[in-house]
């Protein structure tokens, strides 16, 4: 598939996601249940061209979507939308999460479209199975943490305005303990995934350079975010935090993770910078 077809597919996906995001918002504000169904259908429809674009590119450049800012962000958005749709199939009442997740997905790939789209070659350093393990678990980890964030956010929004104009819709979400349980499980799963990602990165660094850890900024910040989530787990498991306090701790942890994920590549000139390089 040519670059042009890929870009057209991507723009179709961006448009569908954007429309879905808008409809989710409208359906929540004006309490139009049916619109949420349409919004979900649009999200699903967006996944199709997005899949085609990613798959076509995979075949063309010969490696998975993990090299360069455009591929990385687009695949995160893809995984996010897919996870959201999957979650909604299981817990129908979680549909209002779309108000948070779809704009995130739309903004992410919209932003990715502005980055250079030329393929990054798989260089000698990148030619390792550990890279595949490393990036897949990174995606799983980030996806889990972002989902836990969304669940905690919904939990807090409802607690804040029990009588608000959105109360009826919010009331249809699963009960607080269920949301909380899910948030906790996603944090725990994300913690495992992030741990595996860090370990795979260390093994890979050891294979490539002979050192498993060099306190490179991205390594350090990944470790920091891992420790931050260890604190979140302990707050619940050892200090017994639950309810809004626990939800706030989940919210507070995400910025650290996002910084480790995108911020570091922008702020520091690290060995990983080329990998995420935003300026091309």
């Amino acid at each position: 598939m040519s670059v042009d077809t890929e870009i057209i597919c991507m723009w179709v996906a961006v448009t569908l996601y954007a429309a879905s995001a808008v409809l989710f918002a409208v359906s929540l504000v004006f309490r139009k249940e049916r619109l949420a169904t349409v919004a979900l259908a649009l999200a699903l429809a967006g996944i199709v061209p997005h899949t085609v674009a990613i798959a076509g590119r995979w075949v063309r450049v010969g490696h998975g979507p993990y090299l360069g800012f455009y591929e990385v962000i687009s695949s995160y958005a893809f995984a996010g939308v897919l996870a959201f749709v999957g979650l909604v199939v299981r817990y129908r009442s979680l549909r209002p999460l779309g108000v948070v997740l779809m704009p995130m997905a739309f903004l992410a790939i919209g932003g990715a479209m502005l980055a250079p789209k030329s393929g990054v070659e798989v260089s000698a350093t990148l030619a390792s199975w550990w890279l595949a393990v490393h990036v897949s678990f990174a995606k799983l980890a980030y996806g889990s943490f972002i989902t836990s964030f969304g669940l905690a956010a919904v939990r807090l929004m409802r607690a804040r305005r029990p009588e608000g104009f959105r109360s009826e819709r919010m009331g249809r979400l699963p009960a607080d303990p269920v949301l909380e349980d899910l948030a906790f499980k996603f944090v725990a799963a994300g913690f495992i995934f992030l741990g595996i990602m860090i370990a795979a990165g260390a093994i890979w660094a050891n294979e490539a350079w002979g050192r498993y850890w060099g306190w490179d900024p991205i390594e350090t910040w990944s470790l920091i975010s891992w420790l931050v989530y260890a604190v979140v787990l302990h707050l619940r498991l050892t200090l017994g935090w639950r309810g809004r306090r626990f939800a706030w701790s989940v919210i507070a942890a995400l910025p650290v993770l996002l910084f480790a994920m995108v911020g570091v590549a922008i702020v520091y000139n690290s060995i990983h910078a080329g990998y995420f390089n935003i300026l091309g």
């Binding site: 269920v178 909380e180 349980d181 906790f184 498991l237 017994g240 639950r242």
Partner: peptide, 8 residues
């Protein structure tokens, strides 16, 4: 703490 639904 690992599963709030458990005790309910």
């Amino acid at each position: 703490r690992r599963q709030s639904g458990a005790s309910e």
